[in-house]
Structure formats: structure tokens, C-alpha cells
């Protein structure tokens, strides 16, 4: 059955790495930029994704995924830099079409901080999703305590969506052959949605019978075809991630959040 996900099967060291190790490192690396109110941490952690994407031979796919963020990044910069009500200092003034528009320091700073977090978190999770089979990913999450039902629902949905898409295309083609034109009228979606839902409800019946037949909800410990023993290297890497995270927390408590106020910013002429 086909899977619908970002995962691209390849034979690289990142793809072969144990999914538990990847999950732990991605979570740790995503949390670090949130702990500090300084965009340098986020941008540095984001830049680390580039060599990993190159090693996993997924750089093109990875960058395509990140390009989706471009409008969001531009709008964050505009909204925060020009309209942040909490900002008190003007970093510099932009001249656009003869208008002088002040760029607010605190707003710009917060925008860069938010962008760095979004890039770091999105970057690392994209790498995780691109290099890990969903089955392996959810096997790892189950071993960290995610309920089996949740894992089952997500994995089944990833298989169900392509099937439903095929049903959708079939219904769309059938309705079009009967003269239906959707155009810009959402009401025309109703004759498409009803047959899709009825098909879906029929699937529910079959699926629930098959689940009942396979003792779904049984409390007996499950085994998984995706089960992988942690090697000594895997265990070392997980322990290392935990040590890095603890060290970062201690560093944060000791040195503060590294916020750079207007007066101390060396990039702005006062």
C-alpha cells in the first residue's frame, strides 16, 4: 500500500540511523533556540541542517520545503518591524517611494528571533520526516510513550489519504461527465463530498471489522516488524543528546537569555 509522506527512501547514514536517536536529537536541537532570546542560536542551529541535508542527499527536497516559508518570513519581518506596539527604539529609517518608514528595533529583533526558531524547528523536523519512514518514526515515538492508538491512527491515515484521493478523482470525473463544473462555487462541492463520505463510511465498517478480528485494543504487549535494537553507538548518541540539553539549560540559567538591548547592539548606528 502506498504511503503519503515527506519520506524519500535513500541509502545514507542519516536514513539508516536509528529513528529513536534521530527523534531525540531533533527535539533537543529544536528546543535550544527557544531557550535563548537571541536569533544567533536559532540561525546557527538552522545552518547545521544544511550539511545533514547534503549527507542525506536530500538538499533539493529540503530547500523546496523551506521555500514555502518565504512569504511567512517576509510578513513576520514587516509586521514586527513596522507595527510592534511594544517597541520603543527606531533601529533605522527606510525610504520607500519617498516615504520615511521607521524600522523598530525591538520589533525587528523579535522578528529575527521568531524566524530563527521557525527555520530551526521546521528545518530539523523536515530532515526527520524526509529521512525517516513514518512506520519507524512512530515506532520510536511509541517507545517514548506515545499510545499505540494514536500511532495507529496517524499511520493508517497516511495510507488512507491516497486511497481517498483516488476515490475523490473518480467521483470528480463521474460528476464532471454529468455536467458538474465546480468553478468558484463551493456549493458544487456537496455532490462530490457526499459520495466520497459514503465510500469512506463503508471503509470504516470494513476497517473496524478487520481491527476487531485482529484484537485491536488488546492489552498484550505488541511486537513490531520495525523493532530495532539500540546499538552501543545509538545509546551513546542518546546519552550525548541528553547531556547537551542539560548543559544548555545550565548555561541558560547561569548566563541568561542573551537578549541584546538597543543600547548594546553593535550593528546599529546610534
Amino acid at each position: 500500500m502506498p504511503w503519503l509522506s515527506m519520506w524519500i527512501p535513500k541509502d545514507t547514514i542519516i536514513h539508516r540511523a536509528n529513528s529513536k536517536v534521530k527523534v531525540v536529537w531533533v527535539v533537543v536541537l529544536s528546543l535550544i533556540p527557544i531557550l535563548f532570546y537571541n536569533p544567533i542560536f536559532g540561525f546557527s542551529i538552522f545552518l547545521l541542517t544544511i550539511p545533514v541535508a547534503i549527507i542525506s542527499r536530500s538538499l533539493k527536497t529540503y530547500l523546496k520545503r523551506l521555500l514555502i516559508l518565504t512569504p511567512t518570513i517576509i510578513i513576520i519581518l514587516i509586521f514586527q518591524s513596522f507595527f510592534a506596539r511594544y517597541a520603543i527604539h527606531v533601529a533605522f529609517t527606510l525610504n520607500i517611494l519617498g516615504y520615511s518608514i521607521p524600522v523598530l528595533y525591538e520589533g525587528l529583533y523579535k522578528a529575527l528571533w521568531l524566524i530563527s526558531i521557525i527555520l530551526a524547528v521546521t528545518g530539523w523536523f523536515s530532515i526527520l520526516f524526509i529521512t525517516t519512514h513514518p512506520g519507524d518514526l512512530f515506532y520510536a515515538l511509541r517507545s517514548f510513550g506515545l499510545p499505540y492508538t494514536v500511532s495507529f491512527i496517524v499511520l493508517s491515515s497516511l495510507q488512507m489519504i491516497p486511497m481517498m484521493e483516488r476515490a475523490m478523482n473518480l467521483v470528480l470525473d463521474s460528476q464532471k461527465s454529468r455536467g458538474l463544473e465546480i468553478g468558484k462555487n463551493p456549493l458544487k462541492l456537496i455532490p462530490v463530498m457526499i459520495p466520497i463520505t459514503v465510500v469512506a463510511l463503508e471503509r470504516i465498517d470494513k476497517m473496524s471489522w478487520s481491527l476487531e478480528g485482529r484484537a485491536f485494543g488488546s492489552s498484550v504487549k505488541r511486537t513490531s516488524i520495525r523493532e530495532k535494537e539500540l546499538t552501543l553507538l545509538d545509546k551513546t548518541l542518546i546519552i550525548l543528546a541528553s547531556i547537551v540539553f542539560l548543559a544548555v539549560i545550565v548555561f541558560r540559567l547561569y548566563f541568561g537569555d542573551f537578549y541584546v538591548p538597543y543600547e548594546q547592539c553593535i550593528f546599529i548606528q546610534k
Binding site: 491512527i153 488512507m160 475523490m168 462541492l189 470504516i204 476497517m207 473496524s208 485491536f216
Partner: peptide, 26 residues
């Protein structure tokens, strides 16, 4: 039954995604 509810959730998620892609047609 729990298995019926779980199956319904799976289909509910798929319907959300399918309806979302149908909306883009408009």
C-alpha cells in the same frame, strides 16, 4: 465500539485532507 471510533477518526482525518484539497479547486 472502540475499533469503529478509531476507524472513523482515520477516515475523518482523510476527509479533512481531501476536503482541503477540494477547496483549492474553487
Amino acid at each position: 465500539s472502540r475499533s469503529y471510533a478509531v476507524s472513523f477518526v482515520v477516515v475523518g482525518i482523510a476527509l479533512n485532507v481531501i476536503a482541503g484539497s477540494l477547496a483549492t479547486l474553487t
